[in-house]
Structures are given as C-alpha cells and as structure tokens.
C-alpha cells in the first residue's frame, strides 16, 4: 500500500571529468513508496531547479530496465538493494523512512566520470566493434528456417543475449573486469550455428580489446553475477575461456 517517506541523500557531485568530486547532502520529503527511485531523483532535481541550483546529472532513458542506460551505485550496490533489476526499476518501497541513502557513479578506470553520476561506457562499444558480431552483410542470406537450432541452445543463447550492457558487472568487480559482459556476447554467438564459424577469432579479438581498454582480469569472485540485473550466469565466462583457449591453441 502507498505511504510516504523522508530521506537524507548523499550524492556524488562532480563538475567534469578532470574536476574534483565531493558528496553533497540533500533532504527529500513525502516521497511516495510507489514512486520509482529515478522519480525520487526527479523530485530532488525539481527542488534544485526551484532553488536555482544545477540539478544532478544521471543517465537514464527507457525507465523499463532494458536500455542499460541507468547506472548508480546505491548504498554500496550497483542498481541498489533489490534483486534482478536496474536502478530505473527500483522502487521507493525498498527504503525506510528516515534512512540515509548514498548515491555514487560506477567506479572503474575504464568508465571515466563525465559529470556527477554519469560515466563514459564507450569502452563497451569498442569491445563489440572488435568482434562482437557475425560477419554477414545485408542481403544474400539463407532462409531463416534453413538451419534448425535445437531449442535448448536457442534458449541459452537468448539467456546470454539478454545482457543490457549496463556495466554493473564491472562496477561490482574489485578488479573492474568486463568478463561477464564479454562472455555473454561470445557465448550467445558461439551457441548458434550462425556465430559458431567465427567463435575463436571473436573471443580472441574481444578479450584483447578488453585488456587494452584497461579492464582488470577476472579472479572468479562471482560478484558480477550477483549484481547483474539480467541474471547473466558466470557459466558464460567458462565458455569464453574455452573459446579463448581454443583460439590460442590454434595459433
């Protein structure tokens, strides 16, 4: 049932990439527990505009948990205190009246801060550009039903393909490794006959790009899987390692 709560917010503010950041404290009151976390941020920003202050910059777009644009480290957890969701799907009923909530950006060397809570995740695009695709041009492809695909393989590929590229896995990892993200794409395409052909090359290209961009190595802590809003399994990391090994062996 709806009720309202008051909160103290400690929010990371930083003017630009090279500037020094700091926490600022704000109060918000009468927040409906039926509103979403980002709606609460909207309310705070309306308040700030009213005081002629610059509102807090944060990334968001779809507000349905699918575009991967929202981020935020809330009380020490990427995407906050609820399971299997993104920040935009987090609702205020998860918070208690009078609570202090700390809000920070993703912190990882490969994701530099742009402003306040916004970070630059173009490194993910660069990893995909290095090989996260099937090399086919438009047109001239076979009929969609020409190659049957066993349903379990198709389902597992879909599980991996559900990754939204949000970067929570990197933010959750003490090494800032991007292995969960990379393995999800390698795994999806390796599971399908269309992607199998280039599997080894793909794994190698994506992993070396990841290393080059300053993401850390994977030490199997499993923190990524716990915080991933789309429940991407670390089993994909094992598949990636296998494909990667194959590519090294065939060199």
């Amino acid at each position: 049932m709806e009720k309202t709560i008051n909160l103290t917010l400690k929010v990371w503010r930083q003017n630009g990439p090279k500037e020094k950041g700091r926490f600022e404290t704000y109060q918000v009151s009468n927040i409906s527990t039926d509103s979403s976390f980002l709606e609460m941020m909207d309310i705070l920003n309306e308040q700030l505009v009213g005081e002629n202050k610059e509102p807090i910059a944060f990334d968001h777009d779809c507000r349905e948990g699918i575009c991967g644009m929202c981020s935020l480290y809330i009380n020490g957890r990427p995407h906050g205190p609820d399971e299997d969701i993104t920040t935009c799907q987090l609702h205020m009923r998860k918070f208690k009246d009078g609570e202090t909530v700390t809000i920070e950006p993703w912190r990882a060397a490969a994701f530099p801060i742009i402003k306040d809570l916004i970070v630059d995740r173009t490194a993910f695009d660069k990893i995909i550009a290095a090989g996260g695709y099937v090399s086919v041009n438009t047109g001239g492809v076979p009929d969609a039903n020409a190659i049957p695909i066993a349903r379990p393989a198709a389902e597992e590929a879909m599980d991996a393909a559900a990754c939204i590229g949000c970067g929570a896995c990197v933010a959750a990892c003490k090494n800032s490794s991007a292995m969960l993200f990379v393995s999800a794409k390698v795994s999806q395409l390796a599971l399908l006959p269309q992607g199998k052909v280039e599997a080894k090359r793909r794994a190698k290209a994506m992993v070396s790009k990841m290393d080059e961009l300053g993401f850390g190595g994977c030490t199997n802590t499993g923190a990524c899987e716990v915080e991933c809003p789309k429940s991407i399994s670390i089993a994909h990391i094992s598949r990636l390692n296998r494909e990667y090994l194959k590519s090294r062996l065939s060199e």
């Binding site: 099937v134 049957p148 198709a154």
Partner: peptide
C-alpha cells in the same frame, strides 16, 4: 527475418 537470423538474433524456436 532471414537477415536477423543470419546475424545471430535468438528468436524463439519450437
């Protein structure tokens, strides 16, 4: 549909 399947889009299957 042909194009998307060739790209590795994991459509639902029977």
């Amino acid at each position: 549909i042909d194009q998307c399947v060739a790209q590795g889009v994991p459509f639902a299957r029977e």
